[in-house]
Every structure is written in structure tokens, then in C-alpha cells.
């Protein structure tokens, strides 16, 4: 149950992160004044990102209710693995070796954590 919830949080946060980056690139980067910065926060990318992250956080509270935070929080790094796998097998990108090595380290770390 906890792990299914963590998986859901990871999916929602990775989606939210990508949307944040898209939003930051499109609007915030070119904002020259305070009012332009505020306006840039209301683009659809940012609003969708906030919806993803807001639902993720309620689910995350349920995870924290059931689990140690020092155990649960590092599981969020699985987001990197999800993004990398989708880049390779869904977007057919070439993924350099250092990234695969990173995934091996993350998965090894997660499996140690899962035993505690």
C-alpha cells in the first residue's frame, strides 16, 4: 500500500517537475518586472504543475503517516529512473552510460532502504 502510494507520488511529481521547467522556460525567463513575473506564474504549464504537485502532496502526507520520513523521502529519487526509462524506451533517446550507472546506484540504494 505504502509503495503503491509512493509510486503515484513519484509519477505526479516527475510530471509536475517537467511542467515547471517548461513553464519557467517559456514565461519566467523573459519576465522583466515583478508584475510580469506574477503573470508568468499563471500560464497553463505552471497551473497544471501545481495541480500535479498539490495532489502528490496529499498522497505524500498519507505516506508520511505510515512510514519513517528518512525511509520514505529518498524513494522520491525513483523519479530520475522513471524519466530516464521513458526517455530511452518511449522517446527513443540515446542515454549515455553515466546515467545508467546513476540508475544502478539509485536502485541499489532504494533496495537497501526498503529493507530497513
Amino acid at each position: 500500500m505504502e509503495y503503491a502510494l509512493i509510486a503515484l507520488v513519484v509519477t505526479l511529481t516527475s510530471t509536475g517537475q517537467v511542467l515547471q521547467k517548461l513553464g519557467a522556460d517559456r514565461g519566467l525567463k523573459n519576465a522583466k518586472s515583478f508584475s510580469q513575473t506574477i503573470a508568468a506564474l499563471f500560464q497553463w504549464e505552471i497551473i497544471l504543475a501545481v495541480i500535479c504537485l498539490a495532489s502528490a502532496i496529499v498522497i505524500w502526507l498519507a505516506v508520511l503517516y505510515m512510514m519513517d520520513v528518512s525511509k520514505a523521502f529518498p524513494f522520491i529519487s525513483l523519479g530520475f529512473v522513471v524519466v530516464l526509462l521513458s526517455a530511452r524506451f518511449y522517446l527513443h533517446e540515446i542515454v549515455p552510460w553515466n546515467r545508467w550507472l546513476g540508475v544502478v546506484f539509485i536502485v541499489a540504494g532504494i533496495s537497501l532502504l526498503a529493507q530497513t
Binding site: 529519487s77 530520475f80 546515467r99 546513476g102 540508475v103 544502478v104 546506484f105 539509485i106
Partner: peptide, 10 residues
Amino acid sequence: LILIGVVFVN
């Protein structure tokens, strides 16, 4: 391990 992994991935 996760920390090392995050650095390598990025």
C-alpha cells in the same frame, strides 16, 4: 548510494 546515483544521472 542514492546521492551518488543522483550525481551520475545528472
